[in-house]
Design a protein around this nucleic acid. Structure first.
Lengths: 140, 140
DNA sequence: TTACTTGCAAACGTTTTGCACGATT
DNA sequence: AATCGTGCAAAACGTTTGCAAGTAA
């Protein structure tokens, strides 16, 4: 998905389209890795020098609210964000290069049903992440 | 598992058994919920007043290292810890009362194999958490 | 006795807030 | 013109570190 689409989404939800938001959105859309707010700040400032870190936080907050971005949980912490425009998806992360890949998790449904039955829970959300080595990192 | 077992484990790994560690361990072992360091601190201080927050952090670090405790990732963040004495397990969390239940995730293996095949990844770790309402919270 | 452990205070990095100025609609 | 968004500075927060005193082995 393109940065323009995201900006349109922001606009349609009553938010204004500004240079600062443009730089943040472009940075996150283009990245193949999950980025921390400071990483977004450093990268986006190459596109728009006057950008402030506070604006990065506030923009990421709005993007998360619109489900354009999702949080990535890792051993180091869970302050990293990645583009998530296709709705809820499961993540596969390369422990070497950090590259993130989404995968379909249809197979999770039966597991959820079975756990719900065994435990008496009503399950409302699930969250699955896999970690390993991507093809190109395996070959090095 | 009991607090004594944990303290023995600490001892066998070259760590000393102290009142401070006893209070932290007892608190975490007894809890059915994941606790943040500050929550552990507040609760453990009822058992040992002189306890410092720093010691809680340092003790949780050692317990995590020995795999007696595992980190719980939630929307609010990933600073909560829960007893994890049975090795790697999957968590089911009640969104209302916070109660945590472990469940077997044998069914995850085929999914992992299939993703590995499709993506070319070598998958080394996985991480699955379910969220919902526990039986007693559903009935209220 | 020795080395590990402790609590305190201070440092640190991250995230949030208050505010006057600036920009978008 | 009105409202929303901005960057700055400062505050708040969670976590880590240095250190001298205390404690387990």
């Amino acid at each position: 998905m393109s940065a323009e689409t995201w900006l349109t989404q922001l606009h349609e939800n009553g938010y204004r389209v500004t240079k600062a938001r443009g730089a943040v959105v472009e940075t996150v859309v283009q990245s193949k890795r999950a980025l921390t707010p400071v990483e977004v700040y450093d990268m986006a400032r190459k596109k728009y020098r006057a950008l402030g870190l506070v604006t990065v936080y506030r923009t990421l907050e709005k993007l998360e609210e619109l489900h354009l971005v999702q949080r990535v949980h890792q051993a180091a912490g869970c302050q990293a964000f990645i583009s998530a425009c296709q709705g809820h998806q499961h993540l596969l992360l390369c422990q070497n290069c950090g590259q993130a890949t989404f995968f379909e998790g249809d197979d999770v449904e039966p597991l959820i049903q079975s756990v719900a039955k065994k435990t008496g829970y009503e399950i409302r959300e699930h969250w699955l992440q896999l970690f390993g080595l991507c093809e190109s990192c395996r070959n090095n």
